[in-house]
Amino acid sequence: QEVDMEAQEQKIRTVFEDPKSFNVKHPLYSAWTLWFDSPATKGRNLPQTPMSSFPQTPVPQTPGGVAALGWMEDIKSVITFDSVEEFWGVYNNIVPPSKLPNKANYYLFKQGIIPAWEDEANKNGGKWSIQLPKGKNERFIDTMWLNTMLAAIGETLDPLPEDGEEQPASLITGVIVSARPQFFRVSIWTRSAPSGAGGEDDALRERIEGVGRVFKTYVLGYPEAQKLAGPLATEVEFLSHKDSEKKGKQAKKIIV
């Protein structure tokens, strides 16, 4: 009898067999932190929020680091998780992007990376993004954001060589959804960005473009050739953070 109980205890029970007393969970490739900000969080002093209890990423004492501190002041860390089961527990208990107030954002970043350009992991990177006007995309945006998060935590955004013994570190640092008065924006942040220098840079550009194609077709569900730009809508486009600072003047966008 005792042996039976022990055997029962040892047996692997996933959440599919036993949603209440499962004994194994599916680890994610990386741990992820969900951050949130909205006009309601601005300037609010919330000593009991996770922002203060969460071990903060040390920000370098450079002008950029200090700027990031100001930027991060209103962004609250909601939770850090490292399993598939926990991801869904979070997802099923927060509001989807279609219900976010205007000017609110969700940021889902790998643990230890703050959702700011100034972070060491982001400063040489860039972002793929798409902007969709409100009014006709409410019924799509929630699925698009869910698919974006699933591809991020499942590590399928960055198509890696399947035969390679040593897989390069993932290019992805985080994903963001933003609600604005007139549009939604979904972004994927990358660790590096091509500079157009040729040589090894071409390989990086190809890899970045691969991420963009996965984003446009598999994640967002558009045919590869579809044109998306229109009033308040953009193509699926990539811009390095350095070029973003130039405000479009010499910005070299990549479009898929």
């Binding site: 994610l28 490739y29 900000d37 609010r44 939770i79 099923n92 927060i94």
Partner: peptide, 30 residues
Amino acid sequence: FRYDRDFLLQFMAICREKPDSLPPLDAIGL
């Protein structure tokens, strides 16, 4: 591990409980 979307979506209807460490949402302005 890496996981495909179809695999991950199978958890959606099952894992509904709030994780212990998820703060009350109104405390973060959500």
